[in-house]
Design a protein around this nucleic acid. Structure first.
Lengths: 207, 207
DNA sequence: ACTGCCATTGACCTCTATGGTCAATATTGT
DNA sequence: ACAATATTGACCATAGAGGTCAATGGCAGT
């Protein structure tokens, strides 16, 4: 179906994907403009509709393709044997950086899918492998050893705190990314700072 | 200038304000539609342009008006004598609930102002009382007693963790708000849960 | 009951931008 | 050299944008 697109020059392919997921993530399906996508990708209008039947098919392709890649990256980067939450979150942080390097807007796009309220696209989304993906995604945060927390601490709340901290840090990094280069963002330095946050939380929340 | 609007029926006035700040916050100045605003507010197109010269004036009015109200609420709800960060954040949480009750999208709108990249509106924003507001806003988080943290904990990082926790909790509440009623959101129960989070952090981060 | 006045409506205007097409052209492999 | 494919961008019908305005509704004072 989309083999023609997937066999094209990889760099151009990624330019199109990045332009499209950015536009869809920012504006939602209905308000996303194919004109903006082709402008940002640096291709002609005709080419986009040469590879994709129409806007909807483009969106559905991106949906499947991004979730495929995300799940693949999760499987590659997460060690499921390791049940310690801080180790797990360290892996997740590395995972996010890994993803950011290829498709900076991918996680924003995936998040936006479920918010998107356009009926045009909603039905076709629900009928697919959504549950499979969601269960894998939830497993990231649920399959965790809770016995190490201090007594008296509600472990669900502790996990939320850790989660919000990692997300807050990642968000702050993404905001900085507008002014910094990719290398600076995905550097060891960034990872080291992240680990400092996790260390504070480990020292504070663990027995 | 806008006295005609400010003297009208308060309930209708708030319906218009809420519809407008929601649309602007979600789509940004350029992509926000006055048609959507009047539809959501339940008024005619003509009426909106009877009160506001044009889209830009509407936006600038909302900008000034929302910041005015926000600063007023800050002054009302924050006790500047109190330098303990957990007490301060408790006040901020109450403040947010207070604001949410009147204009649910107000904080999203204010945040969006600075992200908005439309040149049409950017110049007029910068020239106004932005600095005054920003300094008050920053004071919320800076004017804090740092001596109570455990030794060895970077207090800036600790503050970030607390901040991200409060924001994460608030965001989660706002997501739930789509399915729950206002009363349930702004309840004592919610506040109690928030305090539990702060208590975990206080026990963990303070000496 | 009549009048003057302002709030309010919605059909209407022009103009831009939308998703999508397609004949023409550039580029490629053999 | 030639066939096949990749790519372009002017073009189309249509929808939606911001904004206008003559017509209406309802109310206050006489």
């Amino acid at each position: 179906m989309f083999s023609k697109f997937l066999n094209m020059d990889k760099e151009k392919q990624d330019r199109i994907i990045n332009a499209a997921i950015k536009e869809f993530a920012q504006k939602g399906y209905d308000n996303a403009s194919t004109n903006e996508i082709v402008k940002e990708a640096g291709i002609s209008k005709g080419l986009l509709f040469h590879y994709f039947q129409n806007k909807k098919q483009l969106y559905l392709f991106l949906y499947e393709h991004m979730i495929d890649i995300l799940m693949e990256k999760i499987m590659e980067n997460i060690n499921w044997e390791e049940k310690d939450i801080f180790v797990r979150y360290r892996q997740i942080a590395l995972l996010k950086i890994e993803i950011y390097k290829i498709y900076p807007e991918m996680l924003n796009f995936v998040k936006s899918i479920y918010k998107d309220s356009s009926p045009t696209v909603k039905i076709d989304i629900n009928s697919r492998g959504k549950e499979l993906f969601e269960s894998s995604f939830n497993k990231l945060f649920s399959d965790i050893d809770l016995s190490k927390f201090k007594k008296g601490i509600d472990s669900k709340k502790a996990i939320n705190i850790i989660n919000w901290t990692v997300e807050g840090f990642a968000y702050q990094m993404q905001e900085k990314a507008l002014s910094l280069s990719l290398e600076q963002i995905a550097s060891d330095e960034t990872m080291a700072e992240m680990e400092e946050y996790l260390e504070i939380l480990r020292d504070s929340l663990y027995e």
